[in-house]
Design a protein around this nucleic acid. Structure first.
Length: 466
RNA sequence: GUGGAUGUAGCUCAGCUGGUUAGAGCGUCGGAUUGUGGUUCCGUAGGUCGUGGGUUCGAGUCCCAUCUUCCACCCCA
């Protein structure tokens, strides 16, 4: 009896043509990271549950994949008989903690914080690392939302310098420019949001306020109004907030001036956040050409959910594609505190490789040439010619050119058709005629042109065709 | 986790209110062309109609369950 072949919900296989696209993304991102002098690390797919829980809020904890312990834990618990009947009161949470103590990582930032604390003796600060690995979330899948997906994280830990905030923004700008994806990079500061909450007279409702404004673009002013009312904001406060969201400032500097004068003047926190952002934008102006600067937008309505951000926050969306954010991040002042290493500031961003793939695919922005396997196919004529063909294919490989020989003899039609399907640009023909004269025939599959050459000139000619 | 759609050949889909052997295009493979692919022509193969139950004389079509994918909420890369 055969069973149905399938992958678990929200997970996928990647075939060679998809891997070509994925590797193109990973290589592009890795190149940029490395050029800014970030160093690679990897951490295990699973972490202790104590490392993961409580870091992503209540919702996040629900989305953790937990790994069942091995062993006879039921007998050990003493709460169940052999038929599985409960012998005493034990709630789900308690039971879960009893039977599993490991989980799949939910992101790369928290494992990185754990890594930093654990290796603090070996690390030279500020530590710049990158990490490209899959993460898992037990979310309900949708388009652009998977249960297993790759994040490409770059973080700096152990420095308060805003130069790094600016550097990461520059990295984001460069990655998307290299991938030719038109994006908007929205930037805000958590302390500006805190200042706005003070301005509204409800600093304690900071959380409710940020989750409401985060939806501004999606649900509009009316929707935000409703949300805020539900959270207990007064009408006056709501009007003040909507006025902030509706300010139509063309340039970041205009918006900043207005906020400084009208909204944040009474909030020390808010003003300090604004000052930091000004500094960051100042650095960007030094580092980036004008057309790259245009992709950045200061947006006081950007909130971002993750609770550990404390400073600059950033989010990137592809223009004109209905896929969520493809990159996000920010500064966190005390991520390592929970692991017993307080007062270490970090800043980082994360690229969503799978969503970037979807964007490139939807916008048809993948370069055409990334999928070739071999550059040369050597035709197989049969027993008599095989030895010659094998020697030739080895010579080509030794010259650093990807080559393969067709596995079966005869039927040239089939062999050429194979080269066509595989997008192999060159076919080398070494049949009886050629071998007898120590010659070769090379066909260019794109132009259809064939050239004859002496056997000894092969490598030189192939290298010239490059 | 809550609510709603979806599933027919490898791919994109058709199949009217239940009614004989479930169709098309593209692709595959073979031939026209045994030393030449991409175009053309001819032909071939390929289907547990997502899966499991049920209603019915009869189910791709109706009902229930389940899985997948997608959409909204929640949240997020």
């Amino acid at each position: 009896m055969s069973q149905k072949a399938s992958t678990p919900k929200g997970t996928r296989d990647f075939s060679p043509s998809e891997m070509a696209g994925r590797n193109y993304i990973f290589e592009t991102i890795r190149d940029v990271f490395a050029r800014y002098a970030y160093l690679p690390i990897e951490t295990p797919a699973m972490e202790n549950l104590t490392t993961l829980t409580g870091k992503y809020g209540e919702e996040g904890d629900k989305l953790l994949f937990r790994i069942l312990n091995s062993g006879d834990y039921l007998a050990a618990s003493g709460k169940f008989d052999e038929q599985g009947n409960s012998l005493g009161p034990l709630n789900t949470a308690g039971f879960t903690n009893l039977i599993c103590d490991k989980g799949l990582r939910y992101d790369l930032t928290v494992p990185f914080a754990r890594y930093v604390v654990q290796h603090r003796g070996d690390i030279v600060f500020p530590f710049k690392r990158y990490q490209i690995q899959p993460v898992w979330r037990a979310d309900r899948p949708q388009k652009g939302r998977y249960r297993e997906f790759y994040q490409c994280d770059v973080d700096v830990i152990g420095s308060n310098s805003l130069l790094y905030d600016a550097e990461l923004l520059q990295i984001a700008s460069e990655v998307f420019s290299k991938l030719s994806i038109p994006v908007t990079i929205r930037v805000n500061h958590r302390r500006i949001l805190a200042g706005i909450a003070e301005y509204l007279g409800s600093p304690e409702k900071f959380r409710e306020m940020t989750t409401a404004i985060d939806k501004f673009e999606k649900i509009g002013a009316d929707g935000v109004n409703r949300e805020l009312k539900q959270s207990g904001f007064g009408d006056e406060a709501i009007q003040k907030l909507l006025a902030v969201l509706n300010v139509n400032a063309e340039h970041a500097t205009e918006m900043m001036h207005w906020l400084e004068a009208e909204v944040l003047s009474g909030s020390e926190t808010g003003l300090s956040g604004l000052q930091e952002l000004k500094t960051v934008f100042g650095y960007l102006e030094c580092q980036l050409p004008a057309d790259a600067l245009k992709t950045f937008a200061f947006d006081p309505a950007l909130a971002r959910g993750l609770s550990y951000y404390t400073g600059t926050i950033i989010e990137v969306k592809a223009n004109g594609v209905g896929i969520g954010s493809i990159c996000g991040g920010g500064r966190y002042d005390d991520l390592t505190g929970v692991f017993g290493m307080p007062g270490v500031s970090g800043t980082g961003i994360s690229f969503g490789a799978d969503r970037i793939y979807d964007v490139l695919n939807e916008m048809k922005l993948f370069p055409p040439a990334i999928e070739t396997s071999a550059r040369v196919l050597v035709v197989n004529f049969g027993k008599q010619e095989e030895a010659f063909a094998l020697k030739t294919v080895s010579r080509i490989r030794e010259a650093g050119i990807a080559a393969e020989i067709y596995p079966e003899a005869g039927n040239l039609k089939k062999q050429f058709s194979y080269a066509d399907h595989r997008k192999i640009p060159l076919v080398l023909i070494a049949g009886p005629d050629e071998i007898s004269r120590d010659h070769l025939t090379l066909k260019n599959m794109k132009s259809g042109e064939q050239i004859h050459m002496h056997n000894k000139d092969l490598i030189a000619i192939l290298q010239k065709i490059e």
